[in-house]
C-alpha cells in the first residue's frame, strides 16, 4: 500500500531515468559529502548540457576513498564509461591506510575544483598575526593546540608543512583532530584551542561576522574578500590546496581517454557548471593533461614526506 502511494505520487519521475547510462560516476564517499556533491553536480550538468544522455552516480564509501578506489581499479578496468571522483584527501589516505591500490592504478583526467586552507584564531585571542602564532609555536610547540579535521587529512598535513617551513620539528605539533571541520569550528569559537585550520569556506562566514580572525591562507595569491596574507607572503614556502578531481578507469585506450577529456572540458566550460560552482561556493581550478599529471606526482611526493615527518607513515 505504501508502495502504491509512493509510486502514484512520483510516477512522473520514472520516465526521466529510464535511458541507458553513458557514464557511471563512482563517488568513493557517503551521500552528502564533498566528493558525492561533486559527482552529483557533474551528473546534473553533463545531462543538462547534453554532453551525456544518462549519468549514474554510485556511492562506495570507506577509508578516505580507498575502498571505492580499490573497487574501481579492479571492476572498471578497460571500461571507458566509468569515472571516479577523488581528491587530495585520497593521496594522504592511500599512504596512511597502506592501501594496495594507488592513484597510479587509475587514469587521472582533470582537477576540477579546489579549496584553500585558512588558519584562524578566535576573535578574543591575543594572537593578531601569523608571525605571533609561529613565534609561540617555535618557543613552545606543545602550547599551540591546533583544531582541525581528521588525523592525516589536509588540515593536519598543512600544519606539518607550516611547522617544517618555520623550522619546528613536525613531530612536536599539538594537533587535535576533530571528526570534521565543523566540529573543530565549535572548539575554536569556544576558545578551547589556540588556533584552528580548515578549508576557508568553513570559516568565512564566522570571519565576516567578526567571531574569528583569519591569520593566513594557504593559496599562492591573496584571495579576494579575505583580509589575510598568504603563507608564502609571510615567509613560509608552502601552498596547500584541497582539490577534487575526476579520473577514468585503468587500461583504456588513448582515443577513449581523449574522448573523456573532451567531455570533461565541455563540462567545465559550460555555463551550467560555472553556475553550479557559484551556487556551491566552489573555486574552479580546472587543470588537465600533462600539467595535471606532473602536479599530481609532485603532490604525492610532498605529502609522503610530510606524513613521514609527522610520524603518521612509517
Amino acid at each position: 500500500m505504501k508502495t502504491i502511494v509512493l509510486a502514484a505520487l512520483a510516477a512522473g519521475a520514472l520516465a526521466a531515468h529510464a535511458q541507458a547510462a553513458d557514464y557511471t560516476i563512482l563517488a568513493p564517499a557517503n551521500p552528502g559529502g564533498g566528493w558525492d556533491q561533486t559527482a552529483r553536480t557533474m551528473q546534473e550538468v553533463l545531462q543538462a548540457e547534453g554532453i551525456s544522455d544518462s549519468v549514474q552516480v554510485q556511492n562506495v564509501p570507506g577509508a578516505g576513498g580507498t575502498v571505492g578506489l580499490a573497487q574501481f581499479a579492479s571492476q572498471a578496468a578497460g571500461d571507458p564509461n566509468q569515472l571516479i571522483v577523488g581528491g587530495y584527501v585520497m593521496v594522504g589516505a592511500i599512504l596512511t591506510n597502506q592501501s594496495p591500490v594507488s592513484l597510479a592504478d587509475i587514469t587521472p583526467i582533470a582537477r576540477l575544483t579546489g579549496e584553500y586552507e585558512a588558519i584562524v584564531v578566535p576573535a578574543s585571542s591575543e594572537i593578531q598575526t601569523i608571525e605571533q602564532l609561529v613565534e609561540q609555536l617555535k618557543a613552545e610547540p606543545g602550547s599551540v593546540s591546533w583544531a582541525g579535521g581528521s588525523a592525516g587529512g589536509t588540515d593536519h598535513i598543512a600544519v606539518g608543512l607550516l611547522a617544517k617551513a618555520a623550522g619546528v620539528d613536525p613531530t612536536l605539533i599539538n594537533y587535535v583532530a576533530f571528526s570534521g571541520g565543523g566540529e573543530a569550528l565549535a572548539a575554536i569559537l569556544g576558545s578551547q584551542v589556540t588556533a584552528g585550520i580548515s578549508s576557508l569556506g568553513e570559516f568565512r562566514e564566522q570571519a565576516e561576522a567578526g567571531t574569528l580572525r583569519i591569520l593566513a591562507v594557504s593559496s599562492p595569491e591573496r584571495i579576494e574578500g579575505v583580509d589575510a596574507p598568504t603563507l608564502q607572503e609571510a615567509g613560509y614556502d608552502m601552498v596547500v590546496e584541497n582539490w577534487r578531481m575526476v579520473a577514468a578507469a585503468p587500461g583504456i585506450t588513448e582515443e577513449q581517454k581523449a574522448a573523456i577529456e573532451a567531455d570533461i572540458e565541455a563540462l567545465v566550460t559550460s555555463e551550467g557548471w560555472q553556475q553550479a560552482l557559484a551556487d556551491r561556493g566552489w573555486t574552479d581550478t580546472y587543470l588537465a593533461g600533462e600539467e595535471f599529471e606532473a602536479q599530481l606526482q609532485e603532490e604525492i611526493a610532498t605529502t609522503e614526506t610530510v606524513l613521514r615527518d609527522i610520524g603518521l607513515v612509517q
Binding site: L6, A7, A13, L14, H17, V57, N59
Partner: peptide, 14 residues
C-alpha cells in the same frame, strides 16, 4: 522487484 522499482528507479538509491 517492486521494492527495487520504488527505491532504485524512483528514488535513485544505488
Amino acid at each position: 522487484l517492486a521494492v527495487f522499482a520504488v527505491f532504485a528507479m524512483l528514488l535513485e538509491l544505488s
